[in-house]
Simulated scan of single mutants.
Amino acid sequence: MNNTINGTSINSVRAKTLGDYLKSRRARLQPEQAGLPRSYGQRRTPGLRREEVAILAGVSATYYTWLEQGREVAVSRDVIESISRALQLGGDEHVHLLELWNANEPEAVTAITTEVKPQWREIVNQMAFPCFISNDRAELLAWNRAVNERIADFSSRPREQRNMMSMLFTDPQMRSRLINWEEMAAHSVAIFRTSYDKYAHDPWFAQFVAELSKESAEFAALWKLHRVEIKKVTRVFYSLPDENQVLAYDINSLAFTAEHPDLHLCIYTPASD
């Protein structure tokens, strides 16, 4: 028996999420980019037509249309790979598509971790560099003094406001300190999009995105791009006005235990070059 969320099966949610993602990738690809004859007629929607993607992927137009519509149809790994090539997906985009397809994963609702063990907090506190533990919602669950001093003062904020994504777009202090804000904002939204699709069954994500989109036009614009990226080592530059200097860090994000796959240990190590 399928697990359900508000009466909707997990498989149904996954199928719709997959369909939305395929549609977003199709919309950004022009016929000439895909090696098709340039269209001089008026197109009702941007990007390739569904029929064109189907031809490029070697599947029927009806079958591909059903996928985009979020119907629960059987999809093989070969078909997913063919569609990925047709849509010219990049490395991270391809991985994300496979995760959305996820044919072999058992149906289950992944719970978000909201508390961390005391010993994990102690590990974070012992770090000399900025270090924190966050979950897939971008909520900070543990952080050290260096985070308060170099990134933003999370200790002075109530628990419900300790969200890295929200603060990145709404907190003037964090934004003023982060020199390469535009780069990090785009990267962070792309990472968060992967979590959003992964937890499509969790209403928290849709509510969070809707609220932040109202608060920040910049976030809303980046969100509409539907870009996805996987966490990787990223360099950030922070300005400390009181000390009149710029600090460069490489953000290393480490996966947590198998019991808590939604947690990430982020360590800001001084850049070596």
Rank of each mutant, 00 (worst) to 15 (best):
N3K: 10
T4R: 13
A15L: 04
T17V: 14
S24Y: 05
R26N: 02
A27Q: 14
L29A: 02
L29K: 05
Q33H: 13
G41H: 04
R49Q: 03
E51M: 07
A54K: 01
G58C: 03
T62G: 14
Q69K: 03
G70W: 00
R71C: 01
E72L: 07
V75F: 02
S76K: 08
E81L: 12
D92E: 10
D92K: 03
H96V: 08
L100M: 09
W101V: 10
A103S: 15
A103P: 05
E107W: 07
A108Q: 13
T110P: 03
A111Y: 09
I112A: 07
A128Q: 13
E139I: 05
V147M: 13
E160F: 06
E160V: 06
N163A: 07
D171R: 02
R177T: 01
R177W: 02
S188N: 15
F192S: 04
R193H: 15
T194F: 00
K198M: 05
K198I: 03
F205H: 01
Q207S: 12
A210N: 14
A210G: 09
A220M: 08
L222P: 05
R227T: 10
K231E: 10
L240P: 08
D242R: 14
D242E: 15
E243L: 09
V246A: 11
I251N: 08
N252H: 14
A255V: 11
T257E: 14
L263F: 07
H264T: 15
L265K: 03
T269N: 12
